[in-house]
Computed example of a mutant assay.
Amino acid sequence: MTKLTEFSQTCLEKAGVPQHEARIITETMIEADARGIHSHGLMRLPIYVQRIQKGFIRSVSQVIVEQDSKATAVLDGNFSAGQVVATRAMEIAMGKAAEYGVGAVTAKNSNHFGIAAHYALMAVEQDMIGIVMSNTAPLMPPIGGAEKVLGNNPLAIAAPTPNQYPLLLDMALSNVALGKIIFAQTKGTPIPEGWGVDKDGNATTDPSAVLNGGFILPVGGPKGFGLALMIELLTGVLSGGAFSKMIPSMYDLTQKQSISHFMLAINISSFMDINRFREMASTLSSYVKEAVRASDVTELYLPGEIEFNLEEERKQSGIPMSQSVLADLNRLAATLQVPALDEK
């Protein structure tokens, strides 16, 4: 992973990003790839650099606290890198939670911030519960509709336990993240039914049919769409930023995006003793892990556990990379005059 980290940071620095900000952006991508969430991993580096070079993402961040109160704040990211804006937002939320019990921060005029789990886990490191939301460019139609009006707005919730891993929910509100469909297209592999439909609303296993005028669908039908709508309210609307059809695609290289985030940090010690909370969280986890299993199931998993296990494995074995992503990264390396990655 060290080689990939160095490669990413070098590319970003060549594009004018300060070293500490390049490190933040890189960390989120490496973390995603290590957990098997390749849709938010290094495959995103070329589009980030393109948007930086076009001035749609600030090479040097300029995050401003627009409004501030005891337990809340509103940030204006001024089109800085989403990872940098989101990190700052969670840091402020945690600082407020440490003093007032909870800290809620919205951020507008940001960009794609990678995996939401990264910021929720920042709170866990401070013995807090982290809740993270973001809006995205529209990807999903209303139930019964034929027009994209909402993104598959991600939601992450993380809480500490005394066990090996924290409890972590990290999900997009579509049946699958758009990046996974893009990743399948780059690999030339079909997608499972239910991930999306074509421009005529027909079920398809062809990722290109979904990406070329089709739609991804909300998880749980109207329930998922309703939750995505409320996240849009807590991010774009509550921050005073862009929302819904106001947000262009990341891959539209003619204009800036304006993504909004919502960060909530909950200081557990303001509610109860942290050790007691950990014990109770462990008990809750045990009810899941030790539940009676179906006859063909060998192990029951908690949310986030599979990804944490994979991350531990890849710390030893390294991160696998598809030939198409490797080729994209090496094309980027050539344009930036950075040493190419080899296949090892």
Rank of each mutant, 00 (worst) to 15 (best):
P218D: 00
N153S: 01
R35S: 04
V176K: 01
D76A: 01
T161A: 02
V292K: 12
N309Q: 12
L121T: 04
S260I: 05
V176N: 00
M250I: 13
P160A: 06
K289C: 04
G241S: 06
Q9S: 13
L217I: 08
P192S: 02
V102I: 15
D33I: 03
F79K: 04
I319H: 02
M122F: 07
E232G: 14
H118D: 11
M122I: 08
V102K: 07
G101R: 03
V219R: 11
S174H: 04
Q67K: 15
H112W: 02
E99Y: 01
G82T: 00
G318K: 03
M1L: 11
L238G: 00
A333R: 06
N163E: 14
Q9W: 03
K70T: 14
S59F: 06
T26D: 03
F308Q: 07
N275T: 12
F56I: 08
M171C: 06
G114E: 05
P162G: 13
M171Q: 12
F79D: 12
S258M: 10
P218Y: 10
K187Q: 15
E21S: 11
L42W: 08
G241D: 00
A281C: 03
G241W: 07
P142R: 02
P46E: 02
K108T: 07
I181N: 02
A137F: 09
R35D: 00
S134A: 14
L42M: 13
Q185G: 03
N212R: 12
S61V: 09
A93M: 03
L42V: 06
P138N: 08
Q323G: 05
L173H: 14
K108A: 02
G55H: 00
L300N: 12
A32T: 04
E31Q: 10
N275V: 07
A158W: 05
D170I: 12
T2F: 01
Q185K: 14
R278T: 05
K289E: 00
R331F: 01
G236R: 02
L332N: 09
S270K: 14
V292W: 08
S39C: 13
S59A: 15
S110K: 10
V102G: 00
A93Q: 07
N275H: 15
V74Y: 11
L233V: 15
A120R: 01
E31A: 00
K199Y: 04
E91L: 10
V210I: 08
